[in-house]
Design a protein around this nucleic acid. Structure first.
Lengths: 123, 123
DNA sequence: CTCCTATACTTAGTATTGCTAAGTACATTC
DNA sequence: GAATGTACTTAGCAATACTAAGTATAGGAG
């Protein structure tokens, strides 16, 4: 199948996933790329050209704030992104939107029980 | 919240939903718009300018086939779209892709077990 | 020192796609 | 015949994942 569909499905959820990853603590770009790749089993393997524009958009909307690290010794300087209060709020709303959206789509694709504890008749 | 996110989330799933609606029988454009709106509780309220380009793309990919109705009496002529064998196959693959995708996103948003019996701390 | 690799960030440009807005055509209603 | 409702078409816009190239620094190989 066309990888096109998977690419398109990602639209609108990557920002939510990035915000979610920043919920616990500030992180830098490459770190986010690694974590998203590992935790998704490879499904969310973002290139820099995908992630950084997302971070810039989030920053423009004041959902995250960035600061450059002061490199200790010969460390490379890194730009850490931390979620703001507004970002936390947006994350909650985005998560709700996603759940509602996914529930509707599941229902309309015949996948109508998504509560997670039913036995699903496959095929 | 920005309606932008909802718009973006739709990308990549509308084609699946349209194919799904054609699984049972051929339908025409306006009919699909009505059904999608009704069955989604309004979430998928497509304008013609959204639906028809989708149908044309599906037709280009040989996932659906269209034929003009022969209007009986003074009926308006309608263009009926029917799913092809290739379309059925694509629908199965798309549905699987969606389930896998949604499962990953749910897991990564901490929505991994929604058994429905947890107590949720509301903000 | 130069060359290569790895890390880390930036940015210009492309393709896809949902949407807006306008248009055509026909039938019915007023 | 003007307005309304149905049905389809299309030009153009906006948003965004991706490609591809670039900058900069550090460390190692030669």
């Amino acid at each position: 199948m066309n990888p096109k569909y998977e690419q398109q499905m990602k639209k609108g959820v990557l920002e939510m996933l990035v915000l979610k990853r920043l919920e616990s603590e500030p992180k830098y770009g490459y770190q986010l790329i690694s974590e998203l790749r590992e935790e998704s089993g490879g499904m969310f393997t973002l290139k820099e050209g995908t992630l950084y524009p997302i971070l810039y958009r989030l920053e423009d909307e004041r959902l995250v704030e960035s600061r450059w690290s002061e490199p200790k010794g010969k460390e490379v300087s890194r730009k850490y992104y931390g979620i703001t209060e507004k970002g936390n709020e947006e994350l909650r709303e985005l998560t709700e939107l996603w759940r509602s959206f996914a529930a509707h789509v599941n229902e309309m694709t015949g996948n109508n029980k998504v509560t997670g504890n039913e036995e699903v008749q496959e095929g």
